[in-house]
């Protein structure tokens, strides 16, 4: 059993139900996930996709759905050829602590010498701080995609 490559934790002043909604609503995800829509019907075995500006960037399959406690899916990058690698696994765990909710995100199963891993490691901290800001203040962080080394998809 290999260990997860990344474990991210953030404490958010919200409810498990609102956080679940934020993680699974394509309208909501656009506000903190660099304009990306999360698309799925969130049933075990159903397809999962990330869509930015009409382009599918990543795909997967839903593995676990336990609303509002745990969600996991496989994750495979599709857009850039150099980062097309075997499917990895993303898991979200939601635990309430008083008026806070602890969100743990693990991402695991990268191949040896993965090219995708670099993009993933800069992506999650930004997505999670944007998510926290959006849920707590109603405003996302205005992070330009370029600041994260992400190209504007519309121009590519």
């Amino acid at each position: 059993m290999s260990k997860p490559e990344f474990v991210y934790v953030t404490y958010i002043e919200t409810t498990p139900e609102k956080l679940w909604e934020a993680l699974t609503s394509s309208e909501f995800s656009k506000s903190y996930w660099f304009g990306t829509e999360v698309r799925s019907d969130w049933k075990v075995g159903s397809p999962f996709a990330l869509v930015t500006d009409g382009k599918t960037t990543d795909t997967g399959t839903i593995l676990e759905v336990d609303r509002p406690r745990r969600l996991s899916y496989t994750f495979k990058h599709e857009l850039y050829e150099t980062m097309r690698e075997p499917a990895t696994k993303v898991a979200f765990t939601i635990e309430p602590y008083g008026n806070l909710v602890k969100l743990t995100v693990t991402h695991e199963g990268f191949v040896e010498g993965s090219k995708l891993i670099g993009a993933i490691s800069t992506g999650w901290p930004a997505i999670l701080s944007g998510l926290k800001s959006m849920l707590e203040t109603g405003r996302p962080l205005a992070i330009p995609r370029a600041a994260l080394g992400k190209e504007e998809l519309t121009r590519s």
């Binding site: 997860p4 990344f6 474990v7 991210y8 934790v9 953030t10 999650w124 901290p125 930004a126 999670l128 701080s129 926290k132 800001s133 962080l141 992070i143």
Partner: peptide, 13 residues
């Protein structure tokens, strides 16, 4: 033990 860069990102912002 894992490094959790989320708070560092928030400071950056």
């Amino acid at each position: 033990h894992y490094i959790n860069p989320v708070p560092i990102h928030q400071i950056g912002e």
